[in-house]
Design a protein around this nucleic acid. Structure first.
Lengths: 207, 207
DNA sequence: TTCATTATGGAGCGGTCGTTCTAGAAATGA
DNA sequence: TCATTTCTAGAACGACCGCTCCATAATGAA
């Protein structure tokens, strides 16, 4: 019933999340969003309510197409070692190959959200718990398999890997250096008896 | 020559940095800065040039009174163990006792700065290198002393501690949980043969 | 005293912000 | 066909943005 929408929601959210990701919520104007999505203000407000609504939808879209997707793909791998190595390899390559040094939209949002936006803060916190839970599952599996030593508490290790990931995302905004990242991941992996194969800066595709 | 200033620069920068720290650069209006500092716009612009100038001065003030000060105090301690333990104890207590969960102004700024502000990005990067250098000095001293084992590369350890600190600062905005922080610091300290005394949430003074 | 210089208070500048409004277009159901 | 509903284009709203201007006040130098 009624006139159908002319835009592709996925493409719109893709464009919107790119802008929010690069500039943050506050520094992104609704005009910039209009231009990026090729949507008029009326269409945006009709479809998403307001700027915050579009941001939340764009954030969901971002999480699904990056972090959640990455977790699902690597958790499906046969070994815990491969899952962990693959996850960090991909994370590091992405961080180093982004010419805009946008880091991670989740981390960017974490530092832009304040206790005055408790729902947003809780949303970010919950997503970080999901990442931590992924690490916990992988580590427990690896310990059960015999891939990883069993003397270390998996909860501690999961928290460590989460923080390593968060710290890397901060550093990738200001110091996207392969050498730095290698010296972070190598000792963390060594705890689990894993050898981290040093990686070098990856040139981004020109699109 | 000319009329003297009526305000105390230190108090003004203290007030300004509080507002920037809590809300970020973009979300802080010059009106809010006027109110917080009790200065008219004319006085602010006369003294600091523009909003960015005030921000940079406030940032310097913040760094001097927090991170740089903390580094200097702990590096003066007789043992490397005490320096490292004291530094992280204070960092963790500060993070957990802040009712506004402002995290670290340096980290907040790191994620708000873009490659379009290369000077700001470089400023943040340089400050982070200073923190890393502090860790490196302490670790090298500890290894020379015999306080820390010598089999681990001090450069790797310094990078690790920097990332741990950055990651903690991200998490402190959204998940300021003492238990989480203890499980992060404990294993990192264990590498150096240090025992981390678990800490609990510290209630902030009511001022 | 006078003058040059700098600081302050407060009004207000042009511009941009997030958002809404109105007119009309494109679909469905009767 | 026509009423109803939803979506789109583009102008425009009031609010707020960063910042400047102007008159006046407070200092040191001559």
């Amino acid at each position: 019933m009624g006139r159908p929408r002319e835009f592709d929601q996925d493409k719109v959210l893709d464009a919107a999340s790119r802008v929010f990701w690069a500039n943050g919520y506050e520094a992104t104007s609704t005009r910039a969003l209009s231009e990026a999505t090729s949507l008029t203000p009326a269409s945006i407000y009709n479809a998403f309510g307001d700027k915050r609504g579009l941001f939340l939808s764009a954030m969901e879209h971002y999480l699904n197409s990056t972090i959640r997707n990455r977790i699902a793909r690597h958790e499906a791998l046969p070994s815990a070692s491969a899952a962990l190595t693959g996850f960090f390899t991909e994370s590091m390559d992405r961080a180093l190959s982004d010419p805009d040094q946008r880091g991670c939209m989740l981390v960017n949002t974490a530092l832009e959200s304040t206790p005055r936006n408790p729902e947003l803060t809780e949303f970010v916190a919950a997503e970080m718990r999901q990442i931590e839970a992924f690490f916990l599952r992988v580590i427990k599996t690896g310990q059960k398999n015999g891939e990883f030593p069993k003397d270390l508490k998996p909860e501690d290790l999961a928290a460590q890997f989460l923080t390593l990931l968060m710290g890397m995302r901060v550093l990738s905004r200001v110091r996207p250096e392969a050498k730095l990242f290698n010296s972070l991941i190598r000792p963390a992996f060594a705890q689990l008896g894993l050898v981290w194969p040093n990686r070098t800066r990856k040139i981004s595709p020109t699109l």
